[in-house]
Design a protein around this nucleic acid. Sequence first.
DNA 1: AAACTTCGGTAACCTGGGTTACTTCTTAAC
DNA 2: GTTAAGAAGTAACCCAGGTTACCGAAGTTT
Lengths: 250, 250
Amino acid sequence: MSIRSDMSLYVAKLERRGPLSVAGRKAIMALPTRTREYGIYQDIVREGDRPEHCCFVADGLVSRYKTLRSGARQIVSFHIAGDMVDLSSALVVVADHGIRTHAPTTVVAISHRDILQTSADYPEIGRALWFDTLIDAAIFREWTVNVGRRNSRERTAHLLLEFAYKFRAADQLVNDGFELPISQSDLSDALGITPVHLNRTLQWLRGERLIRTHMRTVTIENWPEMIRLAGFSSAYLHPEGPRELKLPKS
Amino acid sequence: MSIRSDMSLYVAKLERRGPLSVAGRKAIMALPTRTREYGIYQDIVREGDRPEHCCFVADGLVSRYKTLRSGARQIVSFHIAGDMVDLSSALVVVADHGIRTHAPTTVVAISHRDILQTSADYPEIGRALWFDTLIDAAIFREWTVNVGRRNSRERTAHLLLEFAYKFRAADQLVNDGFELPISQSDLSDALGITPVHLNRTLQWLRGERLIRTHMRTVTIENWPEMIRLAGFSSAYLHPEGPRELKLPKS
DNA sequence: AAACTTCGGTAACCTGGGTTACTTCTTAAC
DNA sequence: GTTAAGAAGTAACCCAGGTTACCGAAGTTT
């Protein structure tokens, strides 16, 4: 575990969404951070924990999940490099879900105290973090629709497109393909279906020439048809960024 | 449409969660508001709208929903009297979901400008609103689990318990019963099942003496067994309120 | 290099919930 | 009190997806 500031990736993300004041940018860069490395399938937060830090994913892939009495698991979100995770814990004391890695992952931890203090001192940063929370919520809503009202083909296509759009926004899409280091079993936990049926569904998507998979790279072969099948609209990812952040001076 | 301030219900809710400064309370009460009355099944916000106001439900019941290409609808949340709805639109310009009433409803509209300005001027209010957003997100996560991993009986029991706990927190539970003015067809849109199957499921819950229904009043007859069946834990509703809001002066 | 483990893939069978097409009950409208 | 309209309730049939139990490939542990 090293101590250094590595928030430039986050500042870059914020600036893609809108202008940031010089003081605001400095304040983010000045946040004390601790960088941690995790292996695959390691818990960053466990249900019931009282975390003292938010975490920023600098590299790798993590999911948030809930476990049922029966042992069944539902993954409720995935986060790729550049995502701020667990802002929830800044104000909510007890974690109602776990967070774990699906690949070797680098996490930058920022203490809640500093997050809250900086948000209070720089309203534009408070709003930026609030916006992140709102996007999270919008994605949760879309996932509820996904598992509630779409069949397994539509549902799987929708999740793969969500990944494709997120990777594209992060400039990580090469030739319509992206690295997805997630086992079918884990993907099925996100889709609310069984691994067996996800396998059938992927076979079908491949057979229809909608996607290709090689090792753990997924390639979208037929965008229009995938989008049509999934009923996908990127609107819920709100790539346009927040409402103008500047307010008239009070 | 009348013009008056009616935020005392919201202030009361915030104060149930933790202390508010005198200035903060005054600032909320001073927010300019417009009160509107809606009938049943009226849209407050439509998908694609660019609302200029957040709305606070002073009385009645509303849902947020998304509609698929096929016409299928998924309700993603319900909000009862005392809930602040559509904080999302304070920063997210284009609504990615609709909001409509399920009963005659009184809504207090507050402009985004005022919400953002007051949040910037009073960090404690900014944090309170952010906390509301985080609770929303926690409920969305639980709903994803509900439709993703629970069968129709567990799922229905879970939603009814969520209502019971929300009504209890609002002191609206009488003899374990609460008014739920939602048709089976609408409930099924929230549960991701068909109205026919919801009807079967409700029959079963009644037959097992877990619930009673009369007119549109639902009564929980057997709390322990309902909680066991649903695998319900109220933790995700975070009744304990946010982390201590006061920060050391910077 | 044998033993294990994890993962993708398959086949046979089964069931929870969907579908369609009714009936009955309430309430409201006139 | 007749008609209409929405809501709850029902029955018969059907299928998407679950279940169980297996195989083979690739990696890794000793």
